[in-house]
């Protein structure tokens, strides 16, 4: 089952805390969460500082990614287990990113930091010291990354899955309700997109729903499993969560995450937008 290759639970992590070939990586939106405490042995990756180019709006390039992972002490043959807050949004984003740069063995901790905390499992302040490696990244695999022109060309052709909240989809809000309202120039969604909020794929404790529940969810909401799919949200992290569900858990081929997402699309000149308010 694909699920067992890409997800681990807390018991598995606890059994591998002292395994030198398993590297736990915490990725949060609130990067101060790691400073407070984290799972023993976990290193931190800052989704913004470490994974975004400081000048252009884009990823760090292949050489920068190699430098980052080398400094974090992650080897090409290590098993990387990602986890984080926000129901693993940013951990899913990092997972997608690791896949983009060709890391072989990467997994998500099901439920992320929330489930771990709710279970009252051990969290520590000590930061691990890992010896530097010479990480080699692959050429970016753009089979899992969508760009704006492809999104426009996919209107009415591919499955477009908008995973934001209903109020963001309809155009009432520009960002999730707990974040400052900022960024894109226009509110609304890409025409023909289905609004299937990322949260429908997760239980309250942050774990993913069962394969059967997930397949039924996307089928009922109008995803045609015979077609290619592009998922998007506001900045590409929540849609990485849905990309993970469709591509990694349900093993659907040809699913891309559009990381430009609404902050790019909603600022483009001349593209069609639908709005419900």
């Amino acid at each position: 089952m694909p699920r067992n290759n890409v997800l681990v639970d807390a018991e598995w992590v606890e059994q591998h805390l002292d395994d030198p070939k398993v590297v736990l990586v915490e990725v949060d939106e609130d990067t101060a969460a790691y400073d407070k405490n984290h799972i023993r042995g976990a290193v931190r990756i800052d989704w913004k500082k470490d994974l975004q180019d400081p000048v252009r709006r884009d990823f760090v390039d292949q050489a920068q990614f190699e430098k980052l992972l080398s400094e974090k002490g992650i080897g090409n043959d290590d098993t990387v287990v990602l986890y984080g807050g926000n129901n693993n949004w940013f951990a899913s984003y990092a997972y997608w990113y690791f896949k983009l740069y060709g890391h072989q063995d990467v997994k998500l901790l099901d439920g992320g930091r929330k489930k771990w905390e709710l279970d009252s499992r051990e969290l520590v302040e000590d930061q691990p010291e890992r010896a530097q490696t010479s990480y080699k990244a692959a050429v970016p695999n753009n089979d899992i990354r969508a760009f704006r022109d492809e999104v426009v060309a996919s209107i009415g052709v591919k499955n477009l899955v908008d995973v934001r909240s209903p109020d963001e989809f309809s155009g009432k809000l520009l960002a999730p309700a707990h974040l400052p309202q900022e960024q894109s120039q226009r509110a609304g969604h890409v025409p023909t997109a289905k609004n299937i909020p990322w949260s429908k794929a997760a239980n309250d404790d942050g774990t993913f729903r069962s394969d059967d529940e997930l397949r039924q969810l996307y089928g009922d909401e109008g995803v045609d499993f015979g077609k290619d799919t592009i998922a998007y949200c506001r900045i590409g992290e929540r849609s990485a969560h849905t990309w993970f569900v469709l591509h990694e858990i349900l093993d659907q081929p040809n699913v891309k995450n559009y990381d430009g997402s609404w902050t790019e699309y909603g600022s483009l000149v001349g593209v069609p937008i639908e709005k419900d308010v």
């Binding site: 807050g85 926000n86 129901n87 929330k114 709710l118 909240s165 209903p166 109020d167 999730p176 309700a177 707990h178 974040l179 909020p197 949260s199 429908k200 309250d204």
Partner: peptide
């Protein structure tokens, strides 16, 4: 963990 759900019960946001 505090969740905000809309009038249909749909998840809208979550904070700690």
């Amino acid at each position: 963990y505090v969740r905000l759900l809309d009038s249909t019960g749909e998840f809208t946001a979550e904070v700690v």
